[in-house]
């Protein structure tokens, strides 16, 4: 079964597309988290019109070890580790008392990992689109791009790592929506659907890969190879755009 999946034509086309532009794939994969976190940081600066005035680094490995040691059930360990922070940058308000963190951006390694996976999927979609421009119809390319873009947006949205004291310092993805101006009550109500939205996002990304890696169709809807066209397995590299 696994072998069949690995040898499927779609997976073969995806591997080919990635292999055709490995540097582009790597750049998008690694660049995505960088742009993502810089984007969040810029959003904070624009929204609050103030520079951060503190940073803090956390002992992530030590904290994870402590969580594993002190949590009896593995089913609880993962979600708790998933909330651990590595680094925080934000703004402290010292007008009252000992100071209150007004807002912050934090790096959560678990979420960072998810964003890296998102980057890799996005890079694959981009490579596939470039590779299969000649083999896919415009509607298929547009559909794949739309599904991939929407999927990336949904996953990106549910992995926002911002804290705002206004949301009672609740570090949650909906804080990002609240900062961007969505009503707080609506944002908090949406929080319960976070997982579903994230699953939907990954689902759309996978659907995008599925669509873009499908067999080329002829004008009459039959597979291009049997309709007298060519199977893109055999498209020369130039048609794949690899040498450009």
């Amino acid at each position: 079964m696994t072998a069949a999946v690995l040898q499927s034509p779609r997976l073969h086309r995806i591997r080919e597309a990635v292999a055709a532009r490995p540097r582009l794939w790597l750049a998008v994969t690694l660049g995505f988290p960088v742009v993502y976190y810089l984007g969040m940081f810029a959003a904070l600066l624009i929204r609050f019109q103030a520079l951060p005035n503190y940073t803090e680094t956390f002992d992530w490995f030590g904290n994870v070890a402590e969580i594993i040691r002190s949590t009896p059930d593995w089913s609880d360990i993962w979600p708790i580790i998933g909330q651990e922070w590595l680094f925080e940058v934000g703004r402290m308000n010292y007008d009252y008392g000992a100071g209150i963190s007004e807002w912050s951006l934090y790096i959560n390694p678990t979420k960072f990992g998810l964003i890296l996976i998102l980057g890799a999927l996005t890079a694959t979609v981009v490579n596939l689109m470039l590779a299969r421009r000649a083999a896919c119809s415009t509607s298929r390319l547009n559909g794949g791009a739309a599904a991939g873009g929407l999927g990336a947006a949904l996953v990106g949205m549910t992995n926002v790592t911002l804290a705002w004291v206004v949301c009672c310092a609740t570090p949650s993805w909906v804080v990002g929506l609240a900062i961007l101006g969505l009503g707080v009550s609506t944002s908090l109500w949406l929080e319960q659907f976070g997982w579903w939205i994230e699953y939907a996002g990954f689902g759309l990304l996978l659907a995008s890969l599925y669509v873009l890696s499908g067999e080329p169709k002829g004008p009459d809807g039959t597979p291009a190879a049997t309709a007298g066209g060519h199977d893109d397995h055999h498209i020369p590299n130039t048609a794949m755009g690899a040498s450009r």
Binding site: N93, D95, Y96, I100, E102, W164, V165, V166, C167, C168, T170, A178, G183, V184, S185, L188
Partner: peptide
């Protein structure tokens, strides 16, 4: 939002049958 003061505000609005625009804001701000 989510604090005891928020809970009180919701109850006050219900008890007095009033509607207002609720904004989330930290104590300091």
């Amino acid at each position: 939002v989510g604090s005891a003061a928020w809970g009180m505000l919701l109850k006050a609005a219900q008890d007095n049958n009033i509607k207002f625009q609720l904004k989330n804001q930290s104590p300091a701000v």
